[in-house]
Computed example of a mutant assay.
Amino acid sequence: MPSLFRIGGYLVFFWSNENGEPIHVHVAKGKPSPNATKIWLTRSGQCIVANNTGRIPQSDLNELMDIISAQFFLICRKWKEHFCVEEIQFFC
């Protein structure tokens, strides 16, 4: 499970077994958790919240999504490296 970066007290990461899902990240307070919030990346470089099971407050979530969008190319590169794929599937 690769950790990508920290934003404040939040960890942005991938789970290692994503079963061919489109590119996304998980965000959890402190350390990885099965109840982490899931955020899809879109082809245009934006983010869509798949679920907020981590119950991240909306103001924090908005800031996190802005930063995740700004790190789009880094996340895509890390996704390709970790999952050994040439092309990335996007949610939309």
Rank of each mutant, 00 (worst) to 15 (best):
N62G: 06
Q71C: 06
F72W: 06
M65S: 03
S16N: 14
S44A: 15
E87M: 09
F91T: 05
V25R: 13
I39S: 00
I7P: 00
E63V: 08
L4C: 10
K38S: 14
F5C: 07
I48P: 00
E87N: 13
K38T: 14
T53L: 13
N51M: 09
S16Q: 12
K38E: 15
C76A: 11
T42S: 00
I88Q: 09
T53Y: 11
N17K: 13
C84A: 04
F13L: 10
P32R: 15
L64R: 00
S59P: 00
E63T: 09
C92L: 14
Q71F: 03
I75C: 08
I56Y: 00
P2G: 00
G30V: 08
R55M: 10
E63A: 13
P2D: 00
L4F: 13
V27S: 03
A36R: 09
I56Q: 04
W79H: 08
P34D: 07
Q46E: 15
F91D: 07
L61T: 02
L4D: 10
P2Q: 10
I23P: 07
F90H: 01
A36W: 04
N19Y: 10
S69E: 13
I23M: 06
F13W: 14
N19E: 14
H24D: 06
S16D: 15
I39H: 02
I39F: 04
N62S: 12
P57Y: 03
I23T: 09
W40Y: 15
I7D: 02
I7L: 11
S3K: 10
N35P: 01
V85C: 05
V27C: 06
F14T: 11
K29T: 01
G8Q: 05
E86V: 10
E21T: 05
I7R: 05
V27Y: 08
I56L: 05
E86S: 15
I88G: 06
P34E: 11
K80P: 00
P57A: 12
W79E: 07
F72E: 11
E63C: 04
P22V: 02
G30F: 07
R77T: 11
F90G: 04
M1N: 10
S33L: 04
K78N: 07
N62R: 14
Q46Y: 12
E87D: 11
P32Y: 10
I23N: 05
P2E: 02
C84H: 11
Q89M: 09
E87K: 14
R43W: 14
R6V: 05
L64A: 08
Q46P: 00
C47E: 14
